[in-house]
Nucleic acid binder design. Structure first.
Lengths: 113, 113
DNA sequence: CGGGATCCGCACGGATACTG
DNA sequence: CAGTATCCGTGCGGATCCCG
């Protein structure tokens, strides 16, 4: 098995890897700000994410115990996702990124030739 | 050009993308904890990162104004990297991830059959 | 010493179509 | 409604060698 052998320089690395990627932070934010949300609602809010990718990310977040999944086997089915306690913690920390985050919008402006 | 059209659900997304990847957070941590460091020192501390990758990440961080680069055109050359003010801010926020970060070490335990 | 050049593998992400 | 299945493009990260 490909051990990552990542240096211990940054203790936050595992947590950051767990929320890395194009959609995960948006998912956490959405669930954190608006409480439990159903699959289709998430997909619409995070458009243009594809169902495959969204499912994949939600499963990963669930595996890392950041979100929970509640399924009603009705017809039509109804699946709801929400933040766990750990997920809520992450959401809080994420919010502390907002202030510094805004400063990035003005940086790295396309170098056009 | 492939516009990202990412939803505005998570304001922290740009900042997080700027520090995403396997090495960037480690770089920020290293520079933040130990002040300006020379290239070779960084590479040794973050082993087994390759020089190409390290250079690439450092350049990206510099472009995003998280680190600065100081080059002395001596022989042998001497290049030193350090955190900018913005980089230091990010380092601080990163540290707030440590507490919650530790909880991830115990999660996602190998599914062994 | 601090890179650049080149080649490569893989995981993430995307598009489209189909299903219980 | 909430996914799966399939195919594919791209970019990150890695390995190795070479250069000013």
């Amino acid at each position: 098995m490909k051990r990552e052998t990542t240096p211990d320089t940054c203790p936050a690395a595992p947590a950051l890897r767990a929320i890395a990627g194009r959609w995960k932070t948006h998912i956490i934010y959405l669930l954190g700000e608006e409480g439990p949300v159903r699959f289709n609602a998430i997909q619409r809010r995070l458009a243009p994410v594809s169902p495959k990718v969204l499912t994949s990310r939600l499963r990963e977040l669930a595996k890392d115990d950041l979100v929970w999944r509640e399924q009603e086997e009705t017809i039509p089915p109804k699946v709801t996702y929400g933040l766990t306690d750990l997920g809520r913690e992450v959401h809080e920390v994420l919010k502390s990124f907002d202030a510094v985050g805004r400063k990035f919008d003005s940086v790295a402006p396309e170098e056009k030739s």
